[in-house]
Simulated assay, not measured.
Amino acid sequence: MPTLMGVLRRRVFAPSLESVGFAGRGFPVTPTAATARLEMVPQAVVCGFEWGIEAPPLWEIERRLAMVEPEQRGFGYEGATMAFTILDAMPLGRRDRTRELLLGPGHEHIFLAYIGIGFAMARLPRPLWKQVLPDLSESPYHPTMSWLAVDGYGFDRAYFDTRRWVDEQYQPAPYPWQGAPDYFRRAVDQGIGRALWFIHGAGAAGAAEAVNRFPEHRRADLWSGIGLAATFAGGCDRAGLSALRKSAGEHHAELALGSVFAIKARTYSSFVPRHSRLAVTVLTDLTVDAATELADRTVVGPAEGDAVPAYELWRQRIRAHFGTAQQRLAG
């Protein structure tokens, strides 16, 4: 049973399902069965958030999310992580909900859970950001993949403040995430790229046109975000994916990089839907197993990062694979 305080928090913080839908956001999306399926992603996040913001016991949030279909369950954990992060940041509250969630039932969804932390950052003042990332040293992907929280922040701002962050191409002030303030904006752009895939309803032409309106130096990170979203969330058929790959042009390696990261996240959660299998094949010329092996073979340990974050070093190694493949084809 939710408490009165939990119900009040849900009313204050939780958006409605309609408000996160494409029509509710005013996005130029033609309704189809595929876009309706894609629209379920932000709605699943809202459901997870509503359940989490009520501050239920950990076993209860796990049981609730177990009832969400496997394809959408990770998005539910995104929302629950967002809620727990906000609860942990509140004055006089507990500080361990997010840690317990991500070292417990949410561990296999840790890639998306980091994004949920970023969603919370979009709603918290910057002085509180230093408190949002729990110690997850038991996880092999912490803190390397915590940059996905910054990605999540960028996605949230582009999705909910599209005019400013997409149309006007606003860039936030740097922030010393993991001691690398110069990389902060790049990770934000990766999240904005993911948002473009949703804003344009998985339409290759619309997403490509949106990227091309940005300055050249921002496009590579935007394309990697699109590749991640197209593979993880889906939304179009083989023809649409082929058009997306063609539209990426010289940024194909970045598009493929995002696709490989998406497959790594999907395999880590033990469920790879059909659309993800199709997308990685079309966008990277790799099977799911080969894409996972590439991600595992190139993984970077936290100690390897110095001037460049370990997260970006990992991205560079994956990107180099596709650059080499392109050179072989050209030769």
Rank of each mutant, 00 (worst) to 15 (best):
M1C: 10
M5L: 15
F13P: 00
F13G: 00
F22T: 02
F22A: 01
G26Q: 03
R37I: 05
L38C: 13
M40V: 01
L58W: 10
W59R: 08
I61W: 00
E62L: 01
R64A: 15
V68W: 14
F75T: 09
D88I: 03
A89N: 06
G93T: 13
T98R: 15
T98Q: 09
P105T: 15
H109L: 07
F111A: 12
I117F: 06
R126I: 07
L128P: 00
W129D: 03
Q131N: 07
L136G: 01
S137T: 12
S137H: 10
E138I: 01
S146Q: 07
G152R: 01
D156M: 05
D156K: 12
A158R: 07
F160V: 11
P176V: 11
R185S: 14
R185L: 10
A187W: 07
A195D: 06
A195L: 14
W197A: 13
F198P: 01
I199F: 01
H200L: 00
G201R: 00
A205K: 05
G206M: 14
V211R: 14
F214N: 09
P215Y: 08
H217S: 02
W223Q: 02
T231Q: 09
S242W: 13
L244Q: 08
R245N: 03
K246W: 12
G249R: 04
H252F: 09
F261C: 03
A262E: 03
A262V: 04
P273R: 05
L283C: 07
T287M: 01
V288T: 13
A290V: 09
E293T: 13
L294E: 05
A295K: 00
D296M: 10
G301V: 11
P302G: 10
Y311Q: 05
R315E: 14
I318W: 05
A320C: 02
H321E: 11
H321R: 13
F322T: 06
Q327E: 01
R328H: 15
L329N: 13
G331W: 06
